[in-house]
Design a protein around this nucleic acid. Structure first.
Lengths: 293, 293
DNA sequence: GCATATCGCCGACTGTAGTCAACGATCCAT
DNA sequence: ATGGATCGTTGACTACAGTCGGCGATATGC
C-alpha cells in the first residue's frame, strides 16, 4: 500500500479511536452506559424478541438480560413473555422509553450537526458522501453472500419479509399465489440459485436466479432489509447473480419489478438494464427489464 | 438537517461504534490492552516527556504511570528521569518496543488493507478520499485557532519547531538572524496578529500577519506540525489571516516561501495566490506570492 | 533556607464490558 | 410422557478504563 494511503488510514484510525473513546461511559450525556443506551436506541418501536435484539447488537445473553433489567428498573422498557413461546421474551419501550429514544435521536443528530458546523453546503454533501463510502467499506467486511436452500430458515425469513413489504406497499396487497410461479426446484442447482446476504451473520437480503438452458436468466426475489439499505448490498447480490448467469451461458438477464420500488429501478438502470415489454404477465409488476450478457 | 443526512450519519455512527468496540480489549491481537498498545504506538522514536505523552493521549497521570510500568516490565519502554528536571521523566521505546511499534504499524496497515479488499483501484481512491474528508470533519471540532502573543509559550514552541524544520530542510540551514526582520510588535495588534492552532488543546500550527496601514498585508511563519498535516489546518489558518487582512482594509496579501515546501505552494496557488517577483529580498525564499483582496 | 508548587507514583476505588457455566422453565419430536 | 434442545436468568469471574487522594522527591520564588 502506498505511503499516502497508509498515512490517511492511520490518521483516520486514530481520530475514530479518540471519537469512540469519548462515546464510552456516559453515552451522549444521558447518565447511562453505552450498552444500555444502545439497547433503548436500537430497540425500535414495536415489541422485539429479546433474542433478535441480542443478536443484532452482538451481545451476550447474560449481559443483555442484565441490561434489560436495569432499563426495566429505570422504567424505559418492558419485558414480557413472548405470546408464541413462553420460554422466549419480547421487549418493548415504555412511553418514557420512547421519549428517551427520541431524545437520543435528537442528541445524536445534534452531534452530527456539530461535526458539520462550519462547512459549506457543498462540503456537507462531500462529507456525507464520504460517510456513506466509508460505511460501505467498513460494512462490506462483515457481509457474506452465500448460496442457500430457498427452504432454509434464513431464506424463508427473507422472502417472508419481502412479501410482507410488498403487501404493505401495493394498494391491492401482494398475493404470492397470484404471482408468476417459481417452482420448488427453479432456484436450486442446477436449474437456478438462491443467495442470502448476511451482515454479522444475520440475514439482510436475498436474491434468486432461474437459469433455463439456452434462455435468458430470470431474476426473482431481490430484496434488502431496511436496516441494510444504502450499503450497496443489492448491487453485490446483483453482481453475484449476473456472474451465475454468465457461468450458465445465459444470453441475457431479465426481471420484473414495480415502479413503487424506486431504488430497485435505479439500480437496474445504472447496471445497464433497459426496459422491455411485459414478457411474463406478472400481475404485481409494472416494469420489465432486460440486459444482454 | 434533511432526513437523508441523518440516515447516513446514524449508519456511519453505528458502524464506527461496532468497529471501535472490536478494537477494545486485545488491540490488534497483541495480547495487550488498547491503552498500553496506544502508548507504545504513539510514543514515537525519540524520548518523550511523560507529561507530553499523557496530554497527547488525554490520559490520567496515575493511569499513564501504571501503563508505562506494565510496558517497562514487558521490556518495551524505558522510563528515565528527565535531564532537565529530576521530578519529570522521559519515556523512550527499547529496541523491542520499536519492533513492537513497527509490528503494530504493519498490523494496522493490514487491517486497512483488509477493509479495502474487494474494491477496485478507483474505489480505493474514493474510500481514501472519504477517509480524508471524514478525518478532517471529525478533527475540526477539536481544532481551535486563536490569536496569541508571539512571546507566549505555545507560540514560541510553534515558531521553534518551524525554524528547526527549515534548518533541517535547507542545504545551507536556516538562520533567523539573516531573515527579513519581523519586529516585536509587527505580529501583535494593532500592527498585526499571530494565530496559534490547537488540536485537543495542544499547539499544532501557527501563522502571523503583518498589517501595515494602506500597504499589502504580509503573511509570516505559517506552519503546521507533521502530526496534523492533511487535516486542512493550514487552510483554516490562511482563511483567518486573510479575514484579518480584509478587516484591516489591506489591498492585497503577500508572502514569501520556498519551493521545498511543496504543500505550501500548492495551498497558496489553490487559494488564488499568484507568483510575483522578489519584493523583500528574503534570503531563505525562492518564491513570492500575492493575492489581491 | 524555607514554604510552596509541581511531578510522577501508588493504593484504593468505581464503573463498564464481557465471559462462562449452571439452572429452571418451556417447547418439541418421538 | 419423556429426553433433548432452547430460552432467559443468575452468580461468579476477568479485564479494562479511569478517578481520587496522599506520598515522597524535586524545583523554584522569596
Amino acid at each position: 500500500m502506498p505511503d499516502r494511503h497508509v498515512q490517511t488510514f492511520r490518521q483516520f484510525h486514530r481520530v475514530v479511536m479518540r471519537e469512540a473513546g469519548a462515546l464510552q461511559g456516559d453515552f451522549l450525556g444521558r447518565g447511562r452506559a453505552l450498552g444500555a443506551s444502545r439497547l433503548v436506541w436500537d430497540m425500535g418501536d414495536g415489541p422485539v424478541a429479546v433474542a433478535a435484539l441480542r443478536e443484532r447488537l452482538g451481545l451476550d445473553a447474560g449481559y443483555t438480560s442484565r441490561l434489560l433489567r436495569s432499563l426495566e428498573v429505570e422504567g424505559l422498557v418492558q419485558v414480557r413473555p413472548s405470546p408464541d413461546d413462553a420460554r422466549a421474551k419480547v421487549a418493548s419501550r415504555t412511553v418514557s422509553g420512547a421519549a428517551e429514544a427520541a431524545l437520543l435521536d435528537q442528541l445524536s443528530d445534534a452531534a452530527a450537526q456539530a461535526t458539520l458546523d462550519g462547512f459549506t453546503a457543498s462540503e456537507v454533501a462531500q462529507v456525507e458522501a464520504a460517510a456513506r463510502t466509508l460505511t460501505r467499506a467498513l460494512t462490506r467486511r462483515h457481509l457474506t453472500i452465500d448460496a442457500a436452500d430457498p427452504q432454509s430458515r434464513d431464506a424463508q425469513w427473507c422472502v417472508g419479509q419481502f412479501f410482507a413489504e410488498l403487501d404493505a406497499l401495493f394498494d391491492s396487497g401482494y398475493d404470492p399465489a397470484k404471482a408468476v410461479v417459481v417452482g420448488a426446484g427453479d432456484l436450486t442447482p442446477p436449474r437456478g440459485t438462491f443467495l442470502v446476504a448476511r451482515l454479522h451473520g444475520q440475514p439482510v437480503g436475498c436474491g434468486g436466479v432461474k437459469l433455463p438452458a439456452g434462455e435468458p436468466a430470470f431474476l426473482k426475489r431481490m430484496w434488502v432489509a431496511q436496516s441494510a439499505r444504502g450499503l450497496g448490498v443489492a448491487g453485490l447480490i446483483l453482481d453475484r447473480l449476473e456472474a451465475l448467469a454468465v457461468a450458465a451461458g445465459s444470453p441475457a438477464v431479465t426481471l420484473d419489478t414495480h415502479s413503487v420500488l424506486a431504488a430497485a429501478g435505479q439500480l437496474y438502470e445504472s447496471r445497464g438494464y433497459r426496459q422491455v415489454p411485459d414478457f411474463n404477465g406478472e400481475p404485481h409488476a409494472d416494469r420489465w427489464y432486460r440486459k444482454e450478457l
